[in-house]
Design a protein around this nucleic acid. Structure first.
Lengths: 126, 126
DNA sequence: AGAATATATGAACGGCCGTTCCGACGAGCA
DNA sequence: TGCTCGTCGGAACGGCCGTTCATATATTCT
């Protein structure tokens, strides 16, 4: 009878780990996001999981800025900022416009500022 | 005259990178979050930046679960789940209660589900 | 055209990270 | 008291990641 919570044998076709509540397992599997969505979001979080890149995103959440001003603001080399911006660009977290020699970067999307803001709110309430 | 945007020399005491708009640099430095807050949030994002751990958090955003059910749900070994949960525990993203042999894990905080939900909403709108 | 400036890019290196394998530990059961 | 089960923790290894250094490209200035 389906839907009944029961011990599973290691060979019932779901996986090789015995479990306690088969119902939860099936529901979780059904609700799980696609591998592509999970991979993309994990990549996004990974990019935000570096202090330098996170500070860049926070800086850009206030105003657009050029590479050298970001470097001056954070106290890091231009090379670090440029490499960091590339990673952020690849995950479409930032966009940029070029004005002569100068590249002005900005957040690509309002969600980014929301996400980071929500994150800081979380860590700041201890 | 202060407040005027000007080129900076490499030795004006802020950093060794010349910049375009000194006003933005000073404002950004002033608004920047503390190093501790940045480090903590970066660590948090880094922990969420792994597909396995992200799937665990998503699974727990629906209901509390034990280790073996998480392993069965995700199709990974119990050892991977246990190591992943330790990382999530260390950033206080999950908590657990023990009932006999079984450890039931849950999200430590509503912010976590919000953060991940916001993230998925972002990646799902292309 | 040549020099200086702003940025991007590639190689290389040291370190961290995720997985696997294996053993430890405590709780329930015989 | 043994045995099994659910979970945790350490060690080790292969791979990825962030920084640095050096160089390339494009643009402005003289």
């Amino acid at each position: 009878m389906p839907g009944v919570s029961a011990k599973r044998s290691p060979t019932d076709g779901i996986c090789d780990v015995p479990c306690v509540e088969e119902r939860k397992v099936r529901q979780t599997r059904k609700a799980m996001k696609s591998a592509a969505a999970v991979a993309t979001l994990a990549e996004t979080f990974k990019v935000l999981g570096d202090p330098t890149r996170l500070r860049i995103v926070f800086a850009l959440s206030r105003d657009e800025m050029c590479v050298c001003d970001l470097a001056a603001s954070l106290g890091v080399s231009q090379s670090v900022v440029s490499h960091s911006l590339r990673a952020l660009r690849q995950m479409r977290l930032v966009r940029f416009r070029k004005e002569g020699k100068i590249a002005y970067y900005a957040l690509d999307d309002d969600h980014i500022a929301t996400l980071v803001g929500e994150g800081f709110r979380h860590v700041e309430e201890q």
